[in-house]
Amino acid sequence: MGRSNTHGAPATVSAAPGGMHERVHTESHGAQSSRVSVNRPPIAGIKRRRWNRKTQRDAWVFVAFAAPNVLLILLFTYRPLITNIYYSTLDWTLGSASATAVGVGNYVEFFTSPDASNVLAVTAVFTITTVGGAMILGLLVALALNQKLKGRTFARAVVFAPYVLSGVGVGLVWLFIFDPTYGVLSWILRGVGQASPQWVNDPKLALVMVTIVYVWKNLGYCAVVYLAGLQSIPTQLMEAAALDGASNVRRFLSIVVPLLSPTTFFLLITSLLSSLQAFDIIRIMTPSGNGTSTLIFDSYLQAFGSYNRAGYSAAISVVLFVGLLVMTAVQLRFVERKVHYS
């Protein structure tokens, strides 16, 4: 992507000054002494000095333009990654001035305690079901949207809308729907002669509940991305297969699925990353995390909830970040491959 056609033109233009710049740097003393030396044509000397000044001015402009943003990112995005590693070696309550160094104790506890393995299990279940649910339903909605039907632009917007809404607001709306006494769902269940389950109090059902809401909020994103993928499939290909007598199912499996695989992989990675970061819905619907403590939510509860274990919380953050790093590395490799592919 960095070497697209449009980028090619300025790249070749800037290559000359870039190379010049390097030389200016290495020969900066030489440039001054070149005034005395006779064997250099004077024009080249002037030209080089002008480049020198311009490059220097450009460097200052660059620093002035980019430094605030870069410094903020370093301070509030990169620095915490390192600080977390330090915090994770401490037995420490947030707000307290003293802490005990425990080495890798927090990590040992995380990988051995039953509570932590429960957190890992909840994270795995929540992540797999939300990613799978949002992607499968998203693909189905995308297939529906891909037909030349009236109102599909409107439908596309409506389906996407929950993705931009506040997780807190969405969580409250669904908490009301899931309410065992006054909720719409309990009303429907009573209509068919069933008692409403205790969605919030039952740990297993609480996980089902937040999963449903999370999928509802995010499937529109998958649908719109899949729709873009579907629309990039050449229509001639589908028409040719139809002429050859391929059925709808056959065309879907033999043409659409393979051609959508880059989109599927992209969605898989981005959905995994965002599911692992899910916080708002879980926090507002199940504040105690009973049955819904994913890694990110447990990390929050350990530091800012009633556990008062900031060091342990930092250890969880480090574990989570390493996991995300591995997945991002996979994605970057894939993007590279995709560029070669197309």
């Binding site: 333009f65 970061q277 991002t328």
Partner: peptide
């Protein structure tokens, strides 16, 4: 704007895009 370490700085920003804000909450709070 011409600058020697442009690619490195762009990479730094690109990677920041993938760092989840949640993991930096505790250090930033402190």
């Amino acid at each position: 704007v011409r600058f020697p370490f442009k690619r490195a700085i762009f990479l730094l920003i690109l990677v920041a895009l993938m760092v989840p804000p949640q993991v930096s909450v505790l250090p930033n709070y402190v």
